[in-house]
Amino acid sequence: MSMDLSVPETWRVKGALYRLEAARCKACGRIHYPPMPACPYCGSRDLERVTLPSEGVLESYTVVYAVPEGSRHKAPVLLGLVRLGRVRVVAEITDADPSELRTGMEVEAVLRRIRSDREAGIIRYGVMFRPKLKGGSRGG
């Protein structure tokens, strides 16, 4: 019996992975994601948790064919550089064919299975982005 994924790690990062929790520096006003112990821009430790917007714009994307072990079932992996307000995030893109991706397209956050640890280990859930649903003015 063995597990590849750390259970405490999966638990620790749920704020960032489930809800896009970021940190805002009260000294310089900049926001960074994921939250760090001090502001990467100015070093201040006076930080507050903020939640990033769930909708954004695809600034770049790639189609990863050289996939890491355990991800063959969803190959190729679509990876996006997503701008959410003033912050950029790297996350997987889902529910899209490689041919539909365009830089500048609107995307929205959804919760998905990022990884599951073989047959019996922990399942890691987190935010991925998908092309914004049509009729999406209703998406809020």
């Binding site: 064919d97 049509k134 009729g135 999406g136 209703r138 998406g139």
Partner: peptide, 25 residues
């Protein structure tokens, strides 16, 4: 309230047909 979230039909019209092998995977 209706317009605050996607409708059933918004999801229904988001449609990608797959074959049995893809379904099985």
């Amino acid at each position: 309230r209706r317009s605050l979230a996607p409708l059933f039909d918004d999801y229904l019209s988001r449609r990608k047909e797959i074959d049995y092998a893809t379904y099985a995977k």
